[in-house]
Simulated scan of single mutants.
Amino acid sequence: LLGFYKGILPPVLAETPKRAVKFFTFEQYKKLLGYASLPPGLAFAVAGLGSGLTEAVVVNPFEVVKVTLQTNQNAFTEQPSSFVQAQQIIKTGGLGFQGLNKGLTATLGRHGVFNMVYFGFYFNVKNILPVNKDPNLEFLRKFGIGLVSGTIASIINIPFDVAKSRIQGPQPVPGEIKYRTCFKTMATVYKEEGFLALYKGLLPKIMRLGPGGAVMLLVYEYVYAWLQDTV
Results as ranks from 00 to 15, higher is better:
residue 1 L to W: 09
residue 2 L to A: 13
residue 2 L to V: 10
residue 3 G to A: 11
residue 4 F to N: 15
residue 4 F to P: 04
residue 4 F to L: 14
residue 5 Y to W: 11
residue 7 G to I: 00
residue 8 I to T: 11
residue 11 P to C: 06
residue 13 L to Y: 06
residue 13 L to D: 01
residue 15 E to L: 15
residue 17 P to M: 05
residue 21 V to G: 00
residue 22 K to C: 05
residue 28 Q to W: 11
residue 29 Y to I: 03
residue 30 K to W: 09
residue 32 L to R: 12
residue 32 L to P: 06
residue 33 L to P: 03
residue 33 L to C: 08
residue 34 G to E: 06
residue 37 S to M: 11
residue 42 L to G: 09
residue 44 F to G: 01
residue 45 A to G: 06
residue 47 A to T: 08
residue 48 G to I: 02
residue 48 G to Y: 01
residue 52 G to T: 02
residue 53 L to H: 03
residue 56 A to D: 01
residue 58 V to W: 11
residue 63 E to M: 11
residue 65 V to Q: 00
residue 65 V to N: 00
residue 66 K to W: 02
residue 68 T to S: 13
residue 68 T to C: 05
residue 69 L to W: 00
residue 69 L to C: 04
residue 70 Q to Y: 03
residue 75 A to W: 08
residue 76 F to T: 05
residue 79 Q to Y: 03
residue 79 Q to L: 12
residue 81 S to T: 15
residue 81 S to V: 08
residue 82 S to W: 03
residue 83 F to P: 02
residue 86 A to Y: 02
residue 90 I to Q: 04
residue 91 K to E: 12
residue 93 G to V: 04
residue 95 L to G: 05
residue 96 G to S: 06
residue 100 L to W: 03
residue 102 K to N: 03
residue 103 G to F: 00
residue 104 L to N: 01
residue 107 T to W: 00
residue 107 T to V: 07
residue 108 L to E: 02
residue 114 F to I: 02
residue 115 N to H: 10
residue 115 N to E: 10
residue 115 N to P: 06
residue 118 Y to D: 01
residue 119 F to H: 02
residue 126 K to N: 13
residue 127 N to Q: 12
residue 129 L to H: 07
residue 129 L to Q: 09
residue 130 P to Y: 07
residue 130 P to I: 14
residue 131 V to R: 14
residue 132 N to R: 13
residue 132 N to L: 15
residue 132 N to I: 12
residue 132 N to G: 07
residue 133 K to G: 15
residue 133 K to I: 11
residue 136 N to A: 14
residue 137 L to W: 08
residue 137 L to A: 13
residue 141 R to L: 11
residue 141 R to Y: 06
residue 142 K to S: 10
residue 147 L to T: 04
residue 151 T to R: 01
residue 152 I to W: 03
residue 155 I to K: 04
residue 155 I to W: 08
residue 155 I to P: 04
residue 159 P to D: 07
residue 161 D to R: 09
residue 163 A to C: 12
residue 166 R to P: 04
residue 167 I to H: 02
residue 168 Q to T: 13
residue 170 P to R: 10
residue 171 Q to W: 09
residue 177 I to T: 15
residue 178 K to C: 07
residue 178 K to M: 14
residue 179 Y to A: 08
residue 180 R to I: 15
residue 181 T to P: 06
residue 182 C to G: 04
residue 184 K to G: 15
residue 187 A to M: 13
residue 188 T to V: 14
residue 188 T to W: 08
residue 188 T to M: 14
residue 189 V to Q: 06
residue 191 K to Q: 15
residue 192 E to C: 11
residue 193 E to M: 14
residue 195 F to D: 12
residue 197 A to F: 09
residue 203 L to G: 11
residue 203 L to R: 13
residue 204 P to G: 10
residue 206 I to N: 02
residue 206 I to T: 09
residue 206 I to D: 02
residue 208 R to H: 11
residue 209 L to K: 07
residue 219 V to G: 12
residue 219 V to H: 07
residue 220 Y to G: 07
residue 220 Y to D: 13
